[in-house]
Write a protein that binds this DNA or RNA. Sequence first.
DNA 1: CATTACTGTGTCCGACAGACACAGTTACTC
DNA 2: GAGTAACTGTGTCTGTCGGACACAGTAATG
Lengths: 243, 243
Amino acid sequence: MTELLWGKEPARTRGPKPAITLTAIAEVAIAIADAEGLDAVSMQRVAGELPVTKMALYRYVPGKSELVAVMSDLAMGSPPERPDLPWREALRTWAIDLYDGFTRHPWLLQSTIGRRLLGPNELTWMERGLAALAGTGLTGGEQFDSILVLTSHVRNIAQQSTTFPGHTNGLSEEDMQQSLAEILTTQADRFPHLTAAMRTSAGSENQGLEFGLQRILDGLDLLVRGRIAVPDRIETLPIERRG
Amino acid sequence: MTELLWGKEPARTRGPKPAITLTAIAEVAIAIADAEGLDAVSMQRVAGELPVTKMALYRYVPGKSELVAVMSDLAMGSPPERPDLPWREALRTWAIDLYDGFTRHPWLLQSTIGRRLLGPNELTWMERGLAALAGTGLTGGEQFDSILVLTSHVRNIAQQSTTFPGHTNGLSEEDMQQSLAEILTTQADRFPHLTAAMRTSAGSENQGLEFGLQRILDGLDLLVRGRIAVPDRIETLPIERRG
DNA sequence: CATTACTGTGTCCGACAGACACAGTTACTC
DNA sequence: GAGTAACTGTGTCTGTCGGACACAGTAATG
């Protein structure tokens, strides 16, 4: 599996030459997923757009889940090159680049959840995020946690704003709004704060990405300012609050 | 669908009495999901633990996805009652309660993603989160975005720390660590910051929940301090940074 | 009693992942 | 050059899934 993701070919010797390649399979699968969602990616379907039958794919890939892993890492790509920036701006553009990636391939939100083996591209994304935090005085664990928080935020915003087959259950944004409005008209007393918040939230849609980014970066900034001043004795810094 | 989630019975008249109830179905499904993961929940399996056949379930529920919606809202439950606290502490305990819910029913992480109709319990969770922010001077949109950021964080931490069938692809935490270590020994030059961060992150596992919570709450705190002072003229507050 | 509305059941279908045996193809070895 | 070993692609089969549909049984209404 690691070999598949990291592109180690098994050093062919005898036998017929393979009719296709692993990346060709992955590219076809990506095209299908981009067009019709991840659920439309079946071995049948992928083989149908290649000069082989379904079962031939199992010569290249142990099973469906491994195919998804390979196509995911391929679709993720490398983070785009960016000029050196202060950590905050670097991290912000990194997060927005990540968001763009998820909007380009919304099915990545489905395929890259839970525990999994990391491919070269996903690892490069991590590397780039950590690079931005390298000079901040944060510990390694804190750096990991920081990019994890940002990734979580980006993922969830991307998920919420997607209009895509496969986990939008055939619902439009308007359907949800209307359903919510209906409930609140009949049960406003049960949800007073929700009702109140709805009143003052008109027209503020799609601000979620920037809002969360600024809050998280503000919070990191507070931590970093303490860290740079006193890079040692991390554990007793007064900036670290509890509760 | 809204009727199912919100428990409107269709006012029975003639015909045989139903042998089971919707909540009985949901409870059986929850038990299966708790024990073996959401993928183990099939109509067959659920019916098998009830005195009916598979097809009878379709008298109670239009299809699988609706069953999942109902069982999800039921398993989510209401947020536990908590004494009144300042907004920051209230929001923190709210987030931790949410985290506990996700660890109790890890499959909720799968079933409550993407666009969906909201049930009474999920809406009550929102209500409770918004209640904590009611006195902060944040606009409704900002309140929504705030609890969204917190929810994202909680979800992703819960997902990462779960040891559960269904999206941990049969991998343990050690498997991942070892796979990563192998890659880094052969490709350390490709991932220098990752390698460096790994060195200083020993023993700092499972801090992710608190770390992210504190960062986000710090960021919100910064915003709120500006807001309470000048509740009007929101849009020109100097505390709101860009970039 | 007949009608009407409802419930549960059995059968069937298409789609899916994957196991397995087999035939064809290439390169190495004697 | 012939034989063999290693490899690739294929067809067939199985088990599981969600769900459509027709049908039989049941309870309340007229």
